[in-house]
Amino acid sequence: MTTAAGRPSPGQVTIADVARHAGVAASTVSYVLSGKRAISAVTRDRVLASVRLLGYHPNAGARALASRRANVIALVLPLRAGMQVPVVMQFATAVVTTARAHDHDVLLVTSDEGPAGLRRIAASALVDGVLLMDVELHDPRVPLLRDLALPSVLIGFPADTAGLTCVDLDFHAAGGECVAHLAGLGHRRLALLGAPTAVYERGTGFAHRTRAGVREAADRHGVQVVTLPCGEGAVEVRRTLTELLDRHPDVSGLVVQNEAAVGPVLATLPALGRRVPDDVSVVAICPEEFAGHSSPALTCVPVPAEEVGRQAVSLLMGKLRGETGPEVTLLAPRLTVRDSTAAVPVVGVSDDR
Rank of each mutant, 00 (worst) to 15 (best):
A38C: 00
M317L: 13
D45Y: 00
L254D: 08
H102C: 10
A116R: 14
D103T: 07
D134F: 05
V106L: 01
D105Y: 04
D147N: 10
M133A: 15
D103A: 15
R274Y: 07
C286Q: 08
V24L: 00
E243Y: 02
V255D: 02
H221C: 08
L185G: 15
L53C: 03
P277S: 08
S124W: 12
T110H: 12
V313P: 05
D168R: 06
M133D: 02
G263T: 11
R189N: 10
L164M: 10
H172I: 00
D128I: 11
A70V: 13
L330H: 12
E289C: 04
L269I: 04
L54H: 13
A342T: 12
T197Q: 15
P296G: 08
G55N: 10
A291T: 09
A60L: 14
S50V: 03
V313M: 04
A195V: 09
S314G: 09
V265C: 08
N258M: 05
F157V: 05
V344A: 12
L244D: 12
D279Y: 06
V95G: 06
T97Q: 15
M89V: 02
L107S: 04
T341R: 03
K319N: 05
P304H: 11
A217L: 03
V76T: 10
R37N: 08
T14P: 08
D279S: 05
R37V: 12
V85I: 13
G11V: 11
G186V: 00
P196Q: 11
L75A: 12
A94P: 06
G309Q: 08
P86M: 04
Y200N: 07
R63C: 08
G213A: 09
D250V: 01
T97K: 11
H172Q: 11
A234T: 07
A218L: 07
G163H: 13
H221S: 08
V235L: 13
A267Q: 11
D134S: 14
H104G: 00
E136C: 02
P10F: 02
V72M: 14
G117I: 01
V199K: 04
R334G: 05
P302F: 12
